[in-house]
Design a protein around this nucleic acid. Structure first.
Lengths: 248, 248
DNA sequence: CGATACCTTGACAGGAGTCAACTGGCGTGG
DNA sequence: CCACGCCAGTTGACTCCTGTCAAGGTATCG
């Protein structure tokens, strides 16, 4: 008995993670800012931010900050991969985003962080004190617009993720995840680099490790993807994957 | 056999919906802006916004705009209740937020809206062209900060909702929902006004109508809540409800 | 090369979904 | 005014997708 697939429409997939990629910075790495209310005049204000703060290397599983810590700074991932997550009292974990090079975090926080940030692999992260950011906004009002555009993108991604978590099946979730990463994490040979564990993926998609593993296997058996060494994935049949993702 | 409850910690619940309540405006109705990076100098810039645009009455189930429409304006709910939702091609629906008086929407949009907005009950909504907002931001740079604070609150609520959708059980979801509304939708007698249907609640919590109804019944049988006429709910035992919500 | 962590696979269980019937309120129209 | 139809809500019976528990495989690393 082969894997049975639903029918569905082929549509562009969601493309953004929770991380705020500043438009105009790191061309080719960051996602494009939506051409909305704030994005129309986004300059390269981020070049200023990049020169600020100190870059630091975080080891695998080392935390940048924890839920409840005072939110005194914003962070910018230069290289590597960072996970953001929230916990329930009994230990259930929901990953709310993965951040890659060029992404920012910590902008959307109150006095204290509402989530924990950890390096998935050794990662270089720049820490920028909040006072610096506010001061810079005073100097350059355009920066506020840039940040608004970045937060817009982040919020839209969050809404897309709510649709996924609330209404998609396990298979649709994984297919959506793979296609989202197809746009963000392709290496030179067109393969997707997924350095995070099955548990991480499960906690991001609202599933268990076992279910993620089973769905990976089914996609592999159906020749839709190929699992390569080093956690890389090759998308063999993107059309089928798009159908499976049920993207709006 | 009575309803069996889990044990858990009593913690403050999530309190915000997807709507962006502008801090400083409509005291007592809007939620407080987090005292974060942008909120520290949020003035009453929103008074200016309130004077702009035209207020209009929308009937029950009438849409303000649909997913895919050009995002030419932002909207502010003056009175009533509005639902925001996304659809999958096959009709599955995820409500990403309910907006009450004082809430804004449409700030976080690209060229086109990524969700549909509909009045749940007859609602008065102010429509403010985007050009007005951008112009006003040029005049008053502080407005950008206010908007950033508002979007921060919205994003934090979205992340809390991701935790709910991805990791909470049906009972925990409903308990969380009731407590969230306890802070937002209390009437004079301390009861919660829930004008939306069971289907709306289900689509907001990632459940089905039947499951929502069953959990309501269980809470009622356990004397934790009382279902009143007119869609009102009285929270009899908030402590138990907090335990059930498993809020972090 | 052994220890450990991660992944995969199998067997089984259970929570939520599906399908269906029944109830009650409400508006409409005979 | 009351009957009817309609819709939302509730409840029951049953299904099934995903979770749980457990075992075995494989890669990594000291």
């Amino acid at each position: 008995m082969g894997v049975q697939f639903h029918n569905g429409n082929v549509k562009p997939s969601l493309h953004a993670f929770m991380g705020t990629t500043l438009p105009g910075s790191r061309p080719g790495l960051g996602m494009e800012a939506p051409l909305g209310i704030f994005g129309d005049r986004a300059g390269d204000d981020t070049a200023v931010l990049d020169a600020m703060g100190e870059a630091r290397l975080f080891d695998r599983d080392q935390s940048l900050f924890a839920e409840g810590d005072a939110a005194n700074a914003v962070y910018r991932v230069m290289d590597g991969l960072v996970r953001l997550y929230k916990l329930l009292p009994d230990g259930r974990r929901q990953i709310i985003g993965f951040l890659r090079g060029g992404d920012m975090m910590g902008l959307a926080a109150g006095e204290r962080f509402a989530y924990t940030a950890e390096a998935v692999v050794p990662s270089t992260v720049r820490r920028i004190p909040r006072a610096r950011v506010t001061a810079l906004m005073d100097e350059r009002p355009a920066l506020a617009r840039t940040l608004l555009a970045a937060m817009t993108a982040e919020l839209m991604a969050a809404q897309e993720q709510m649709l996924l978590l609330g209404r998609k099946t396990a298979r649709e979730k994984l297919a959506t995840f793979l296609l989202a990463n197809d746009e963000r994490a392709q290496d030179a040979s067109g393969r997707i680099d997924l350095p995070m564990s099955r548990t991480d993926i499960a906690d991001y998609l609202g599933l268990t490790t076992e279910t993620v593993s089973r769905e990976f296997t089914k996609l592999k058996t159906a020749r839709v993807i190929r699992l390569m060494e080093g956690g890389k994935v090759e998308l063999v049949d993107r059309d089928t994957l798009s159908e499976l993702a049920e993207c709006a």
